[in-house]
């Protein structure tokens, strides 16, 4: 059993009285992926909290206004770094795959599911 994911250990997570809230679907996906990777034991919650804090801190140092709308941008950047550090998937792999999705999306007629390997 891995220890549970304590959301209160995370800096300034956007929440209401019922739990986390998301402005857009990709944010919920990034959130769920992080919880699932942690549950599978690929990193500890403490490691995750530290990476997220570091990312937010660095953004603030760069002058991020930190009004909450950029929170999940930092979340996504922290997750990309952590999975690379843990050797789960490299930055280069992510970049290549991102380009492939971009190409696939551009070549998919509207209304059809976007799949890799088209076009």
């Amino acid at each position: 059993m891995s220890q549970s994911a304590d959301l209160s250990e995370l800096p300034s997570l956007p929440m209401d009285e019922d739990g986390p809230v998301f402005a857009e679907p990709w944010q919920a996906q990034a959130f769920a992926m992080t919880l699932e990777l942690h549950r599978a034991g690929h990193f500890t919650w403490k490691e995750w909290a530290a990476h997220l804090s570091e990312e937010i801190g660095a953004a603030q140092a760069r002058g991020d206004p930190d009004r909450g709308d950029t929170y999940y941008l930092h979340w996504l950047a922290a997750l990309e770094k952590l999975v690379a550090e843990k050797g789960l998937t490299s930055a280069a792999e992510l970049d290549t795959r991102k380009t492939e999705w971009d190409e696939a999306a551009r070549h998919t007629p509207h209304g059809e599911p976007i799949e890799l390997g088209k076009g």
Binding site: L76, V83, I114
Partner: peptide, 28 residues
């Protein structure tokens, strides 16, 4: 119209991690 950068990055992560068996798409 292209998908937003964040959406593409999340899709890249999700598809790679799923292929490698690191996350269970059903659990996700």
């Amino acid at each position: 119209a292209p998908l937003p950068d964040t959406v593409l990055r999340v899709k890249a992560l999700e598809s790679l991690l799923t292929e490698k068996g690191l996350v269970d798409p059903a659990a996700l």
